[in-house]
Design a protein around this nucleic acid. Structure first.
Lengths: 349, 349
DNA sequence: GTGAAAGCGCTAACAA
DNA sequence: TTGTTAGCGCTTTCAC
């Protein structure tokens, strides 16, 4: 089969409509955008033709002459991660409500990709760029990246889900400390004191802050922190699994573990199972992100939720406001809440 | 904080570069695209300036004057489903290699959204549109949708991961029958004969074909099909859970169950656990899609894989070829393979 | 090898 | 209310 370009109906433009309606292109443009009043009679005639030809104005031409494209670019570390896909979909919905489109690209956490995608969005003249995860998660901002963002910022506002001290970006971040507070209160109210923190990497801002708050909670409650209960690794199931296996090598096993995210938690569950222990009877698990994974493990995970809908809305609201030159706080925070499911329970001392 | 648009450096254009280099805009365009030879001396001078100002040509203007935008629009039923996100990422990678960009939108399976997103991509002058899931999965094509696609096809080639008899689209689909053959062979070689098929909806093409092949396999092996072993529902964990619970109400429980996808499988696992049975010792499970969920359940799932990388590549190759007017088969197929993990084992009669 | 000029499709003054 | 005109930034003949 061949796609015969020659058979393609000549693309119809605003001029074709104008001609057939016996008016000028401007008038057609006016009814298209409702930007000025047009005599009802002409208006009807034009609208008929628009329907007849199923005319859709060329977005490229429109974007070229307008100042805005009504498009927001979103760069995500990896949509395959349900945390990001949930947040992306929330953004998409919020944008749609506001009459904006979104574009999505994956950086896979690679700095070259991130820079390239930033360029691409700049070239496409998006009204704003939202960067979710990737370099903006780094505890220590990469200099090359900061330089890049600074250059992008001169033409396009950038909103990040992390922090970037060295560049004029807008941050909308989760209050990780508050999340950890919820987790600790939950576990301690169940009588747990031997609490492990498993998975993640301290060079990632969110993980670092979680860890700090974990320490503070222990301290303020007079529980001594045990270094061997904090096992760093990564954010995937396998890492969670291996990290938890290491915990099982200890003489004194914790009664509760905090997983850095739901993925890691799934690996932790596997490790616990393989060691013949029950959840939550023998060991409780609480994790972060409350992705759909929390609902599909056995037992279901108690997990910290971020209200993705609101989070996405905040991101989009900020992007739109900033792109229109409105005043906006440079730093906003979203409040987490704990969703209690089956994986956590009382400590049987 | 306020984003001061006035402080924004004047966007620099090809003309600015040309002026400073003492050449014409055409020449700058030439070195930008390597579309014609330019005296080395000038070329160097121009490239210096491009670097100096970090100049990126306006994609809108380029798209307006060019015939192609080098962009492929992808409409997906729901990126939050790992099947789609995996396929999308595969497409993105394949596109990148070919020098194309991709745009993504979610239809959430709603026909209005799909139509709207088709329009949007047409307006953006994407070179081709890939439709993954949604209406193209319907066993019976929706007429309104077919009409829409037909109108889109006159200007933009459409590639679908399903079928659409009433419109000139290109199909690249999974060979569902072959997938089911693999599953049946696997189970039957383990001695299973009491095999249930759980989850999904027969109005979805892929599910319908799976079911047909399931029947054929039973028949050709002289195993009588039992209607009560085929429980329809949907594609999420909860549906799988409920469907499996219904199976447990039967007098004669199957020794193996085929889950319509990994999500449903996770719910099935839960049901089996709650009924105090072991996997795979008492009941084997095999599912479809081989998403990362298959790796994170306990036990890990035996699942049918589609080689997402190749699948995405085929989709993109087709999109690019068709958009360039090249000859292309209207129907292509991707071959699945079975990834055996822990959830399936011998039938202990 | 290089520049001038026209045009891609739309919007936004400015006149009328 | 409506049409005319001049761009938006880039590519691409067509001369030179």
């Amino acid at each position: 089969m061949e796609y015969d370009k020659s058979s393609v109906g000549k693309t119809i433009t605003i001029y074709d409509i104008a001609e057939e309606a016996g008016v000028s292109a401007s008038t057609v443009s006016r009814v298209l955008n409702g930007s000025a009043s047009v005599r009802k009679e002409k208006k009807d005639r034009i609208q008929k033709l628009i329907e007849k030809y199923n005319f859709k104005p060329n977005a490229l031409a429109k974007g070229l002459s307008d100042t805005a494209t009504n498009t927001i670019g979103i760069i995500v570390a990896d949509v395959r991660n349900p945390y990001y896909s949930a947040l992306f979909v929330a953004c998409e919905m919020a944008a749609e409500k506001a009459g904006y489109n979104v574009g999505l690209t994956n950086s896979l956490g690679e700095i070259d990709r991130e820079c390239h995608e930033l360029d691409l969005f700049v070239q496409q003249k998006v009204d704003a760029i939202i960067q979710m995860g990737g370099r903006v998660d780094d505890l220590i901002t990469d200099d090359e990246y900061a330089r890049k963002i600074r250059s992008v910022c001169t033409s396009t506002p950038v909103i990040v889900t992390g922090k970037l001290d060295k560049a004029p970006v807008y941050s909308v971040v989760i209050d990780e400390g508050a999340g950890m507070n919820l987790v600790m209160e939950h576990l301690i109210s169940y009588g747990h004191e031997k609490i492990a923190l498993v998975g993640g990497n301290m060079m990632v801002t969110s993980t670092f802050y979680k860890y700090r708050r974990y320490q503070e909670n222990l301290k303020s409650r007079g529980i001594k922190e045990r270094g061997e209960y904090v096992v760093n690794s990564a954010y995937d199931p396998e890492s969670g699994y291996e990290a938890m296996n290491r915990i099982f090598e200890l003489d004194d096993i914790p009664t509760a573990v905090i997983a850095i995210n739901d993925f890691a938690a799934s690996g932790i569950i596997r490790s616990i199972r393989e060691h013949g222990m029950r959840i939550p009877e023998d060991i409780s698990i609480v994790s972060f992100d409350n992705t759909y994974i929390a609902d599909l493990t056995y037992p279901k995970l108690t997990s910290v939720d971020y209200n993705y809908k609101n989070y996405g809305q905040a991101l989009i609201d900020t992007a739109i406001a900033v792109s229109m030159g409105k005043e906006c706080p440079a730093f906003q925070t979203v409040e987490p809440k704990l969703v209690v499911r089956e994986s956590s329970g009382p400590c049987k001392k």
